[in-house]
């Protein structure tokens, strides 16, 4: 149960960490002046009046970065247990890890060649 106690610490931390930044913001709410008007509350776009909808359509490039990241994220998570156990494994384990990484490098090379990694 020792480890669960460690996690209890994390749980309490998660419950309390929000208090530290919330306190000064609430404190500021108590003392600060509150005189909003329509002009003040305007969206700040360098003094130019805002045109149209804020939720503009974004380019597909962001989505591709997100996808490539997701694939690598899953890959790296598979590698962490491998790395932890590596010390007591053998050459076969090295080969297995090598093959795993090599196959994914293919994906990176493909993305590179298809210019999916370019910022356009």
């Amino acid at each position: 149960m020792e480890t669960l106690n460690e996690w209890a610490f994390v749980g309490v931390f998660f419950a309390i960490a929000w208090v530290f930044p919330a306190l000064p913001i609430i404190g500021a709410w108590l003392v600060r002046p509150k005189k909003p008007n329509a002009l003040k509350k305007q969206t700040y776009e360098s003094g130019v009046e805002t045109v149209g909808d804020t939720w503009v359509q974004f380019r597909v490039q962001y989505y591709i970065y997100g996808l490539v990241f997701l694939i690598f994220d899953v890959e790296m998570i598979f590698l962490f247990p491998w790395a932890v156990a590596y010390e007591r494994l053998d050459w076969f384990a090295y080969g297995a890890g090598f093959l795993f990484i090599f196959l994914l490098t293919d994906a990176l090379i493909y993305a590179w060649r298809k210019r999916a990694l370019e910022w356009v």
Binding site: V60, Y63, I64, L67, V68, I71, V74, E75, F78, A96, L99, F100, I101, L103, L104, D106, A107, Y110, A111, K114, A116
Partner: peptide, 20 residues
């Protein structure tokens, strides 16, 4: 383990093809 790697590779290639 290795098949997972191939699956991830295929997923990435598929995603790029569709998106591009």
């Amino acid at each position: 383990f290795e098949v997972a790697s191939i699956l991830l590779t295929a997923a990435m290639i598929g995603a790029i093809v569709v998106a591009r």
